[in-house]
């Protein structure tokens, strides 16, 4: 399986799209497939402080539940409200419309602790 080149990935199966001081985060297609039909996402609140690799939300499928782990530290500036009524976006478009939150990045260096697309592909193969 291949993953978008412009993203960084955590071992907990989250992705980050860094854009200067802000970043968009979500879960990978691998994570979405493993969970199966996703039925609910517990989103963080705007203003919430995320800490890299710490839990910040929950994602539920029909038969499983998993914590969301922040791929980097920062403050939540926006959440994807569409997920509240259309959690299936996480299955159908995890790297696009299924994004979870936008974050004001606290420390850009943290990206170095994440994998690139090839590294993540190896991890999940």
């Amino acid at each position: 399986m291949t993953y978008p080149d412009d993203l960084r990935y955590s071992k907990d199966h989250e992705w980050v799209r860094a854009d200067g001081s802000t970043a968009t985060i979500g879960i990978t297609s691998f994570a979405a497939d493993e969970l199966g039909d996703i039925v609910f996402v517990e989103l963080p609140e705007v203003g919430a402080a995320l800490k890299q690799f710490a839990a910040f939300g929950v994602v539920e499928s029909v038969k499983a539940v998993s914590d969301l782990f922040a791929p980097l530290s920062g403050t939540v500036s926006e959440v994807n409200a569409r997920l509240q009524t259309e959690p299936e976006l996480l299955n159908s478009d995890p790297f696009g419309d299924g994004w979870i939150a936008k974050v004001d990045v606290a420390d850009g260096d943290e990206l170095k602790a994440l994998l690139d697309a090839d590294g993540y592909a190896k991890l999940t193969s």
Binding site: D37, V39, F40, E60, S61, T85, E86, P87, E88
Partner: peptide, 8 residues
């Protein structure tokens, strides 16, 4: 369809 049942 259990997914729809849980989503809505």
């Amino acid at each position: 369809d259990e997914a729809s049942a849980a989503r809505r």
